[in-house]
């Protein structure tokens, strides 16, 4: 391994200037949990490393309108943030499941997203939370919708030298909930076999939400959904995103359309699961078989929506009852 310089700029402008000075051989490094691995594997031999860890203007969580998260915010900071847990739950779900605590203490969301691995855990939540990527470049800042940011495996819409400053998400109504389900073989230190995120905004025509108590029990899921149907719980808005089952993290747009404006019922759930499964393009790999991934998209899409709905109905309950599915 050849030696290299290690720069620690304190501002975005300084970082970009260093990158320009490196003649294209520099590599930005944030938490380093991916870059350092690539260097050790000799898959990457940078001319210099330009650290974004000390750039203060990348380290912010701003909740004044919607949610704005700096790219250098660590997964652990996101996972433990009260507002994110409450209002952008899919994101804290995902951030809290990345790697291990040691990894989450240093690994940043900016790094996770810019690597653009199909398995990036935070990608699906950002997709369902309508995030835009704030990018700083020589000619100033621009914002790109997250769905347009991922171009393919390890490819993102970043120009030479550009830096992702952060991610901006709109404010959602009170009746909005979201969830991310990471399907893994182990319960920690694992990459997802697939990941599913969902966001729903619901409308309840009646005054009282009777299905609340059903959700608190270990009642059969069919019965819970029956209650939803009886009480005419309408899904006003929906987003569904899938990870690992396509070359890039993707939205299941047909499934979203099929869900929007409908009264939630078991039949609808089955339909949505099937549609989402038909939209993905999973592959066989050592980490999972394609047929299984597709089938899990079907199953977990239903569960992610249900969990998102539950979070609207029971905003203060953080514990999801153990159910026999």
């Amino acid at each position: 391994m050849g030696s290299f310089e290690y720069y620690k700029p304190e501002s975005v402008a300084e970082a970009m200037a260093l990158m320009e000075g490196s003649g294209g051989k520099g590599v930005y490094i944030s938490g380093g949990t991916d870059v350092m691995v690539l260097i050790r594997q000799r898959k990457l031999s940078p001319g210099c490393l330009i650290s974004l860890r000390n750039v203060r203007d990348l380290d912010y969580v701003d909740t004044s309108s919607g949610l704005a998260v700096g790219s250098a915010v660590t997964h652990n900071a996101i996972a433990k943030n009260d507002l994110i847990q409450k209002r952008y739950t899919a994101l804290s779900d995902a951030a809290s499941k990345v790697g291990s605590l040691q990894i989450r203490n240093v690994a940043t969301m900016g790094g996770n997203i810019c690597n653009a691995a199909p398995s990036a855990d935070t990608a699906c939540p950002l997709l369902v939370l309508d995030a835009s990527v704030v990018i700083a470049g020589k000619s100033g800042e621009r914002a790109v919708p997250i769905d347009e940011f991922f171009l393919g495996p390890n490819k993102v819409a970043l120009g030479p030298g550009e830096i992702v400053k952060g991610f901006a998400m709109p404010a959602f109504s009170e009746k909005t909930g979201s969830a991310y389900i990471k399907h893994t073989r182990r319960q920690a230190m694992d990459l997802p076999m697939l990941g599913v995120a969902a966001r729903v905004t619901i409308r309840i025509d009646g005054n009282e939400i009777g299905c609340r108590d059903a959700l608190c029990t270990i009642d059969n899921i069919s019965n819970v959904l029956k209650r939803f149907e009886d009480e005419k719980l309408v899904c006003e808005d929906a987003r569904i995103a899938l990870g690992v089952v396509a070359p890039r993290p993707m939205r299941a747009k047909k499934a979203e359309t099929a869900l929007k404006g409908k009264v939630i019922s078991e039949g609808l759930f089955e339909e949505i699961g099937e549609i989402a499964a038909s939209e993905c393009q999973p592959r066989d790999s050592i980490r999972g078989e394609a047929w299984y991934r597709r089938d899990m998209v079907r199953v977990l899409t239903k569960r992610a929506i249900l969990r998102a709905v539950d979070r609207v109905i029971r905003p203060d309950d953080t514990i999801w009852p153990e159910r026999l599915w």
Binding site: I29, G32, T33, S51, Q102, N105
Partner: peptide
Amino acid sequence: QAVNSCLYP
């Protein structure tokens, strides 16, 4: 904070 020193520059 607990950190993996093998990945820490």
